[in-house]
Amino acid sequence: MAAPTKKNASSACVIPGGFTVLSLKFRSNSTAQHQLCVKEHRVRAQTSKHRPPDRTLFVLNVPPYCSQEAELQKKEAEEQQEDEEGWVKVTKGGKGIKSRPHSEAANQRALQKEHNKKKRKELLNFYTWQHRNSKREHIAELRRKFEEDKQRIALLRAQRKFRPY
């Protein structure tokens, strides 16, 4: 966001609530103006002893595209331009890469993703005998579950019998 100067800032007026409305242009070649509502922020000054009084502002109606990141992107773009000899300054990290400290939980998630990826690629039944054994085990498991279900149904039927006394 550009600092208001005579070119890109017009008049300021006071509205109810103690806010001062500042009309300004974010770019010198822009025709559109944006209004920011500003007033002195007194809450921190009363509760916090280490903050100097009359030095904080409360600003409303700040557009979402106006951020420190945008200011940093402009600086990075300027640094990436060639100098008079044709050299480009190369800095650590690439475009769009945000480095952040890794936590233990983030490392665990990364390891789990890698483990799952390896597991998906692994061929379980490559040989015929492996495929046959897995089918046999699956059928045995189904039979065992079927017998358990039969016993449970028989128990439920026994409990359902009519007992008048």
Rank of each mutant, 00 (worst) to 15 (best):
A3D: 12
K75Q: 13
A154D: 08
K117V: 07
F26C: 02
E69P: 07
P101I: 14
P52H: 04
Y127L: 05
N29H: 05
K119E: 02
R100S: 10
I139K: 04
K150H: 07
W129I: 15
K135M: 01
D149G: 11
Q108W: 03
P53E: 02
R152K: 10
E148V: 06
S134Y: 06
K118C: 13
P64M: 09
E104F: 03
S23I: 00
A32D: 15
E137Y: 10
Q108Y: 03
T31H: 10
L22Q: 14
S67P: 04
N8G: 07
K118E: 08
K161W: 10
T5A: 12
N61T: 05
K161F: 12
A77Q: 09
S10A: 12
I139S: 07
G93W: 02
V59I: 09
E84P: 02
K150I: 07
A106E: 10
T91H: 01
V38P: 00
P16F: 07
Y65V: 04
S99T: 13
E147I: 11
P63M: 00
S67G: 06
I153F: 13
R55N: 13
S28V: 05
R100I: 13
K117S: 10
S11L: 13
S30E: 08
R42D: 13
Q81A: 15
K118Q: 13
E69F: 10
R44H: 12
Y65G: 09
H50M: 11
L142V: 06
H34S: 00
R44W: 12
R163N: 10
E71W: 14
R160E: 08
E82Q: 12
K118Y: 02
N133A: 08
A2V: 14
K75R: 15
Y127D: 05
F26M: 08
H102W: 11
K39R: 12
S10P: 11
K119H: 07
G94R: 04
K89D: 04
I139M: 09
T47Y: 01
D54G: 11
W87F: 05
Y127F: 13
N133K: 08
K145L: 14
R27S: 12
E79N: 11
G96V: 04
A3R: 14
R144A: 08
G86P: 00
N8E: 03
F19P: 00
R44M: 14
S48W: 00
R51P: 01
K6G: 14
S23K: 04
K89I: 05
H41L: 03
V59F: 06
G96F: 01
Q68F: 15
V62S: 01
P4I: 06
I15N: 10
